[in-house]
């Protein structure tokens, strides 16, 4: 990733229409499949897009900062052992969290309850990621 010296802006650009398309994908593919809350963030910890079922009130900015740092640390560990980890999953008693990379630039963070099957969810997330990628083409 190259960054510009003079202007501190992200290397990717997303216009309003693209953002709307992404939020629509998050909503129709993920929130409607039972995910409580989903965030698309960049690796600096900025929130790009989000969706939720209206029942979640987590501190999403803190989540984004921690998730990007956590993933960066995992990436660095992967480099050390010569691997590439593209997803992470933590299972909780009531709420679980799933992280997936979208290329190397973004991270999709999905929070869901125990009523959702992990298998189905993985499938939905993979589909959503493909759709999000196509927003750039």
């Amino acid at each position: 990733m190259a960054s510009d010296d003079d202007r501190s802006v992200t290397d990717y650009t997303l216009n309003q229409v693209q953002l709307e398309r992404i939020e629509k994908i998050l909503d129709s593919d993920l929130v409607r499949s039972g995910i409580n809350s989903v965030l698309m963030i960049d690796m600096a910890g900025n929130i790009i897009a989000k969706g939720d079922n209206g029942k979640c009130n987590h501190d999403v900015y803190a989540l984004a900062a921690l998730a990007s740092a956590n993933f960066a640390a995992v990436d660095t560990m992967a480099n050390i052992v010569g691997e590439d980890f593209s997803l992470l999953f933590h299972k909780g008693e009531h709420e679980s969290i799933h992280f997936s990379k979208i290329w190397n630039e973004f991270l999709l963070i999905s929070l869901f309850g125990k009523d959702v099957s992990l298998g189905l969810l993985r499938l939905k997330i993979a589909e959503a990621i493909e759709k999000i990628k196509s927003v750039w083409h």
Partner: peptide, 15 residues
């Protein structure tokens, strides 16, 4: 690399 969200009219910058 501040993120400027043109849709929500929101800027996130990192210090």
């Amino acid at each position: 690399m501040a993120f400027v969200n043109l849709k929500n009219k929101e800027v996130q910058a990192k210090v």
